[in-house]
Computed example of a mutant assay.
Amino acid sequence: MHSKRIALVTGANQGIGLQLAKELVANGYTVLVGARDLTKGEAAAASIGSEARALQLDVTVPGSIIAAAARIRSEFGRLDLLVNNAAISHAGAPGRSLAEIMQSTRPSVASLDEVRAVYETNVFGVIAVTQALLPLLREAPAARIVNVSSGLGSLTLVSDPTFPFRSGFDVVYSASKTALNAVTVAFALELESAGIKVNAVSPGFTATALNNFEGTDTLEEGSRAPVWMALDETGPTVTFVGPDGPMPW
């Protein structure tokens, strides 16, 4: 059995996922850098150090998920921390501005094909990966699952006329994060008796590829809450936190 704590971060070859992997390694973890493109995953892992290992993982491909779970069991025998970070904000033409993406994902005009594609990664992918890795999480003494969500997924916040990002709520990315929050609660309630903690975290409006790097927060700022949540081994379960603390579901 591997002596160090083992973490898997999906979508970890760039952005907040990469920063999370770096912080976890710095805090004594061996981190599996999940990436659809293994070459990019290997480059990311090399930039972190010897305790980061690239893992080919496309959360929308069942065979990829099964192979990843088999490799983790073979090499480590357990998983202490799963961070479901992989996400996409749209499935339309690349290179569009954030304003253009927001226009195309309004409820009245959004493509159902795009809704389905985003849900495949942001919702169904999280369920599939979590289900596949639960046997390995059950082998850990204090397993945790962290789902990277968004403040736009909070129905309480977007229902408030004073919420500054209210106009950005759509049926594609935003609604997928609302669904992810529901998935988080469902897993947390089922796994509470097993001692596996499941929580959601919002990085805030961080400049990443998700928003064409038009976010207002730096990567360092946006990574603070996810890093804190990922490293917190003694906190509660069924919580949703953001850069400024607890958030309403």
Results as ranks from 00 to 15, higher is better:
G63V: 00
R78C: 00
T237G: 02
P94F: 14
G153M: 02
V241P: 01
G41L: 05
E114I: 11
L24K: 10
I101Q: 07
A140W: 09
R144F: 03
L191E: 13
R116H: 14
S176V: 01
S104W: 08
D160H: 05
S104V: 09
E51M: 11
G153I: 05
M229V: 04
S111Y: 03
L157A: 15
F240I: 07
I145P: 07
G245V: 09
V129A: 02
T184V: 04
E139H: 13
V241E: 10
S89N: 12
A175G: 04
E139C: 13
T130K: 11
P236V: 04
E192L: 01
G242V: 05
P141W: 13
N84Y: 12
G153N: 08
K197V: 14
D170W: 00
G168R: 11
T30P: 08
G245N: 06
L157M: 14
V148W: 01
T216N: 13
K40Q: 15
L152I: 06
G77Y: 10
K40G: 06
T216Q: 11
I66K: 14
I16K: 10
L24V: 12
M102G: 06
V118Y: 14
T239E: 11
L38T: 02
T237Y: 02
P203E: 10
T162I: 03
S47Y: 03
P203Q: 13
V148F: 06
L152D: 04
S159E: 08
S176N: 01
G28K: 07
P62N: 07
R36V: 00
V146P: 12
M229F: 05
T30E: 11
R53P: 01
T130R: 12
S3N: 04
R5E: 11
E139I: 10
A70R: 04
F163Y: 12
A110M: 12
G245A: 08
V83L: 08
G168M: 13
P226H: 10
M102A: 12
L157G: 07
G168S: 09
S202H: 06
F213T: 06
S202E: 02
A52V: 12
V158P: 00
N199V: 12
R166Y: 09
N84V: 05
S111T: 08
E120L: 01
L57E: 09
A140S: 15
G245T: 08
M1D: 03
A175C: 02
R224W: 01
S149I: 06
R71S: 09
G95W: 14
H2R: 11
A67D: 15
K4W: 04
G49R: 03
A21P: 00
V198S: 05
G245I: 12
G95T: 15
